[in-house]
Design a protein around this nucleic acid. Structure first.
Lengths: 116, 116
DNA sequence: CAAGTTGTTCTAGTTGAGCTAGAGTAATTA
DNA sequence: TAATTACTCTAGCTCAACTAGAACAACTTG
């Protein structure tokens, strides 16, 4: 499982981890039932604190992407869904936003408003 | 111009202001050339510090939505654009994300990745 | 059963972004 | 000239994020 974090980024480390893992579940790089590295292990390999990784795992559990069990570890949840249409929709809205010279912040803020 | 902020929200006050004003420019409630309240004035009416409002104005200037001039105030920039398609695309991607039980955070993170 | 693995929970200290406050400066308008 | 208004600078406060260490509970493995 490939992951990277940027300590200098404005987005929190735990959010970067969440985003990275979630994206891999959605695009299929991580598949149902697959086991993730132990939190302590991933933390060391990314040079990040264990608690930061654990927080990310817990967010992903709350969102339904992971199953967490003591002793067993973190496993990609069985969440039967087809993300193909979503990916097309995302590509389309991003292209349109680019055409209008909107920043990523502007677009995501608009989407957040539409989500209310 | 209607605006409201929630001091208890996780999203920063200045971001809430930016999002609110930007959304009104995009949906046409605020139109090109229209003058916004003076920063001091808006700050008082929202019970927020002047610097917070000024920061919002400056972000919106950087994004091309406002023109700022000392003595004159903040004016909606002439930015001839048609946002109709964008709004349709946003509605579509939000509907799809809802259908897939994605949180707003999850969707915006995916979009941010697609924007890179 | 015993030992090892791994997530969970708790306390605690550090750092930086966001917010507030006050004062003064510079450009524009009336 | 006087009023308006954005800009800049300093300074202090608060809270989320991050780190660190320790103990605990559930599960697996030999």
């Amino acid at each position: 499982m490939y992951l990277s974090v940027d300590a200098g980024s404005a987005t929190p480390l735990f959010e970067q981890l969440v985003a990275g893992i979630r994206a891999q579940v959605i695009d299929g790089s991580l598949s149902q039932g697959e086991r993730l590295p132990a939190a302590r292990e991933l933390a060391e390999s990314l040079d990040v604190n264990v608690h930061t990784v654990l927080r990310s795992y817990q967010v992903l559990r709350d969102e339904g992407f992971l199953d967490l069990r003591r002793g067993r570890g973190a496993v990609v949840a069985s969440r039967v869904r087809d993300y193909a249409q979503l990916e097309r929709d995302i590509d389309r809205v991003v292209a349109e936003a680019r055409k209008l010279d909107l920043t990523a912040n502007a677009l995501t803020a608009l989407i957040r408003k539409a989500y209310e």
